[in-house]
Structures are given as structure tokens and as C-alpha cells.
Design a protein around this nucleic acid. Structure first.
Lengths: 224, 224
DNA sequence: ATTATTAATATTGGATACAATAATAAAAAT
DNA sequence: ATTTTTATTATTGTATCCAATATTAATAAT
């Protein structure tokens, strides 16, 4: 099937439309609204966004670089397939990158930043499946922000986006969210005590175990 | 100054020219042939590569994602500035990513792969400043290849490219190369013994200390 | 009937043309 | 003289057009 023509979305007519198109497509892909494997035709997207194919092509290139779209020369674009084996890789990369960020962040962490993270955590507690991904990302990024390493933070952000796609199709249970929330509490406590070593250890376990759980969850779903 | 028009380079007329243009520009930027801060005009590049501005734009986007080019909407592209403070960040990211790769690679490492790495190492021994960067990258990537994690390997490759730019402008001494070579020997020994823990420890120190050395080298060069 | 070959169609890649924005130079005002 | 405003130029962003490639359908051959 091709992209069923959705409501034409008028976008800001200024500057770089490519970035705006990429932004909209990105959220659609992460949320699963555009499913994996979907073929993205330049003409259809151009109609949807009321532009020519040119900015659409630019946007597809951007998303390709982020790993959300596969682009084959002369053959078009398709939403990147989520191969279950790849989950481990992404979560391993997250673990080492985020531990590095946290290690440098903790000495610079202010109380108000910890409070902000706690606020996001409590929000996530009552939130449903829909918002879990974005709140989870916000929680983590709040803690890492003071590490003052822009390249590292951008890298982590990309990995979160990739991971969130799996979360969506995994249809995670409340159990998963509860456990994550508990681990976030422990992590916050260690941050509050400025216990860098403990916090890093907790974070590493938190990410790796989440990845493992997701992996088995999707594995059994695919064979069932 | 703008890009002084160099010899027009005819490139393969098929498929995706953007990747080819990106490849050529990448080596020029890494080697320092195109210096940091240089403004890249689409028209000039199009002339150089005998194409229109269109594939050039695609290429610039690719390089932007790799961190080699800064792209500002409606204002053009410039070769990314090498801020000395950023060296540590890149080398820290290299360390954790490459240790992760090596950890998973060693159990899968074959003797012939180790021999190949050793061959590259001995080549680097006699090589000059020019080839050090590319041989160093080849050495490391040979050891990581069997980890079978494409996303991780691509990430590492990008980080190497970024690091190599600093190497070029640092005008490193033979001392630096000698030490690197010695550490490569030790690393190979640990790999040969399939001693994962030791190899990872050596690799981590190898990368971090190289980053530190580069940092101080450039720091003193900028104040002198 | 099945496969191979050719023709028709759809889709992407690239070139040219035009529009919007930013940078620069010139002119006017204080 | 300095600042503000306006006009000019340079450069990027987008649209449209054409060419190259891939896909599909139709035809021919075995």
C-alpha cells in the first residue's frame, strides 16, 4: 500500500520548509502513525505539505541520516524497518553514551534541575502509554543537560528517538512503566546524594534491562 | 575569502552524485585542504563538480549530519570550526563507543583479522604524518568489524573523521605516532590472548590519553 | 503454460528558472 | 560625521521541466 493521502497540512511558508517537513514526519514515524516499511512517495508527501517535491527530498535526506528512513538511489524511500535484533545495539549505545553524560553532569547538577526531573517523573507516573516515550526522554535529558557536551546530547537524543519507535510497537504494559518509574526514583536519589558512581551504575542497569525487556517482549510478539 | 576555484572534477554520472560529492568534500575537509571556517558556496561547488547546485545541497546536508559542516538556513554552509574544547568530548565518545565495539568483537575475532590489523599497524609504523590518520582508523576498524553492529560502527567512523581533523592541524610529532604504535602493539597482544577485559582497558586508556595529548598540544599552539 | 523480450508507465534524480531572504552599497536624514 | 533608510546585489530556497532509472504490462518465443 502507498501512503493514504491524509489531510493536507499547510506549513510555514518561510525559510527552510525541509526542516519543518522533517519534523512532522519524524513525529509521525516515531509515534508509529506512519508504520515501518511504508513507502514514502515524494509526490504524495508534496501534496500533503502543499509544496513541491524539492523540500520533501531534503526532508527525506535528513530523516535518512537519523536512521528513521531508508533511502535507496532511484528506488525511493521507505520508513526504516525495525529489526528486533537491532534493539540491543541501540540500548547498548544508549547505556554507554548516557552514563558518560551523567558522569559529567552530576557534579554540575543543581537542586532545581533535580526538582525539575522529579516533576517530570511524577507526571510520567500518571501518564499513559502515549506520553511515556516523550516524558521518559525529557526526564533523562534533564539530568544530562548540565554535562555541557552538545554533541553527546544530540547523539543521545537521536538514540532516544530510535528507541521510542520500538516502545510504540511493543505495546508495553503498565508493568514496564511502573518498573521504569521505580528505577527513576532510585536514580534521582543517587543524583540527589551526588553519588556519581552509584547513579551511573543504576543508569546503566536501568537502560540495559529496559532494552532486554523490550527485546524479549518484541521477540515473543513476532513469533506469536 | 571564498573557495578558490580548484580543478573541475568530473564525477560518475550515475545514481546519486550527492554521495560522491560528499565523499570528496569529506576527505578535503578532514585533510584540512579546505580549512575550518571556509564558506562553501553552492555555486562554486557545483562548478567544481560539474553539476547543478542540487546534488551539492544534498551533499552538504550529509556532511552537516556528520558534524563536518555547519548549515544555517538561508545563510549557507561553512566548514565546521574546530573548537579545542570539543576534542575531549569527541575522544570521550570514541572511548565508550569503541570499548563497547571491541568488547563484542573479541569473542568473534579470527586470527586472520588480527593478522590484518597487525599488517596495518606495521604499515603505519613507517608511514608519515600524512597517512597516519587513515591508517589509524583502518587499524581500529579492523578490530571492531566482527562485533556485527552496523550502527555502532558507523557512529565510530564519524567520530574518527572528526578526530582526524584535529590531528591534521595539530601537526603531531613522531613521538605521538611512536607512542600510538606501541599501544597498538599491546592492544593486539591482548586481542590475540582473547583477554577482553585487558584489551578494553588498554583501548580506553589509549583513546583517552591520545585525546589529552592532542588537547594540550592544540591548547599550547593556540596561546603561543 | 512459462519464460524471455520488448514496450509503456511511474518515479526518482538533476538542471534550469524563479522567488525569497540576507548581505552589501548607496543615499538621505539627523 | 554618524546613523538610518533605501536600493542593489549576491545567495539560498522552491518550483517546474527534462532525463535517467526502475517497475509494470504486454508481447513474443520456446
Amino acid at each position: 500500500m502507498t501512503d493514504k493521502a491524509p489531510k493536507p497540512t499547510k506549513i510555514s511558508r518561510s525559510g527552510a520548509q525541509a526542516n519543518e517537513i522533517a519534523r512532522l514526519l519524524r513525529t509521525d514515524i516515531i509515534s508509529g502513525e506512519i508504520p515501518q516499511g511504508e513507502i514514502l512517495r515524494q509526490e504524495n508527501l508534496a501534496q500533503r505539505f502543499q509544496t513541491s517535491r524539492m523540500p520533501v527530498r531534503d526532508a527525506l535526506r535528513i530523516l535518512e541520516q537519523e536512521g528513521l528512513v531508508d533511502l535507496q538511489p532511484n528506488r525511493g524511500a521507505q520508513v526504516a524497518i525495525l529489526d528486533v535484533e537491532g534493539i540491543r545495539e541501540i540500548y547498548e549505545m544508549r547505556a554507554v553514551a548516557e552514563v558518560l553524560a551523567l558522569r559529567h553532569a552530576i557534579p554540575e547538577l543543581t537542586n532545581s534541575q533535580i526538582e525539575k526531573a522529579e516533576k517530570i517523573r511524577s507526571e510520567a507516573e500518571s501518564a499513559g502509554l502515549e506520553q511515556f516515550g516523550v516524558l521518559n526522554k525529557a526526564f533523562h535529558e534533564t539530568l544530562y543537560a548540565p554535562c555541557a557536551r552538545p554533541r553527546l546530547l544530540s547523539h543521545i537524543s537521536s538514540l532516544h528517538d530510535l528507541a521510542d519507535r520500538y516502545l510504540r510497537i511493543a505495546a508495553i504494559e503498565l508493568d514496564y512503566i511502573d518498573r521504569s518509574n521505580q528505577e527513576h526514583c532510585q536514580l534521582l536519589a543517587a543524583c540527589n546524594a551526588r553519588d556519581t558512581l552509584k547513579a551511573c551504575k543504576l543508569l546503566d542497569q536501568h537502560i540495559i534491562s529496559a532494552g532486554e525487556k523490550l527485546f524479549t517482549r518484541l521477540k515473543e510478539a513476532s513469533t506469536r
